[in-house]
């Protein structure tokens, strides 16, 4: 006898569209958090560099916490903490907030390394040419230090892009969550996971190769 109701249906082209949309959401949440997080991180990096003792005692330990607690715990914690202080955040907003702070805590170290990579004589030279402190930062430290740590920054950005998969625990349907939903329906885990993995790989691999080749070129 043929079953009248089928619980599972096969993988259709429509599902590919569903995965594509989810991939765009992954991209959107990563781009947003990486952009804001990098801006904040550079600011923190500068504070860490200039603030010496005060910053070491205040900003550094706080940033350290975000690097020492698993991202998934941070997400769950923040998502459940927000209503306690009266904030009503949807999974996307909570995800962006935590991913941003997480990015900032990682970028802060990179940015400080970048500022330290510019040697003092160079900066003294800039100042003695009549540049103000900010001109020195903008036209000397930023181009030279930025170049020194650009590959490291790419590594952090790609890491955050991959870690954005964890926002799925809050119920935000990004690529990995979408693939799980499809697996539940189609019962074809291998095919769907391969598609999802291929997307991440296709995004991450060329960028990391490009960063590595830039590093080699600049090292010469």
């Amino acid at each position: 006898m043929e079953p009248t109701i089928s619980f599972f249906s096969g993988f259709t082209p429509n599902d590919l569209l569903f995965l594509g949309e989810a991939a765009l959401r992954t991209l959107w949440i990563s781009v947003l958090s990486i952009t804001i997080g990098t801006a904040l991180g550079v600011l923190f990096g500068w504070v860490l560099y200039e603030g010496k003792l005060a910053a070491t005692l205040t900003v550094a330990p706080v940033l350290d916490i975000f690097r020492s607690v698993p991202l998934i715990i941070q997400l769950v914690l923040f998502y459940n903490f927000a209503p306690i202080v009266g904030l009503n955040l949807d999974p996307f907003a909570s995800g962006v907030v935590i991913l941003t702070i997480y990015t900032a805590s990682l970028v802060a170290n990179v940015a400080r390394g970048g500022i330290e990579a510019v040697e003092t004589p160079m900066r003294r030279a800039a100042r003695s040419l009549g540049m103000t402190y900010w001109q020195d930062l903008r036209y000397v430290v930023f181009p030279i230090g930025g170049r020194a740590v650009f590959p490291a920054w790419v590594g952090v950005a790609l890491g955050v892009m991959k870690d954005s998969a964890l926002v799925s625990v809050l119920g935000y349907v990004e690529l990995l969550k979408a693939s799980q939903i499809l697996i539940t329906r189609t019962q074809e885990p291998f095919l769907i996971l391969t598609i999802a993995g291929a997307f991440y790989f296709a995004l991450s691999y060329p960028i990391s190769r490009y960063a590595a080749s830039l590093e080699r070129k600049w090292a010469q």
């Binding site: 799925s168 697996i183 996971l193 999802a196 993995g197 691999y205």
Partner: peptide, 23 residues
């Protein structure tokens, strides 16, 4: 090496969890 470095760790866990179930 490239797969381990360029896909999310969660994806890798899912692969060992559900993906191998297909076989």
């Amino acid at each position: 090496v490239e797969l381990a470095r360029n896909t999310p760790a969660l994806f890798q866990l899912f692969f060992f969890g559900f993906g191998l179930g297909a076989f």
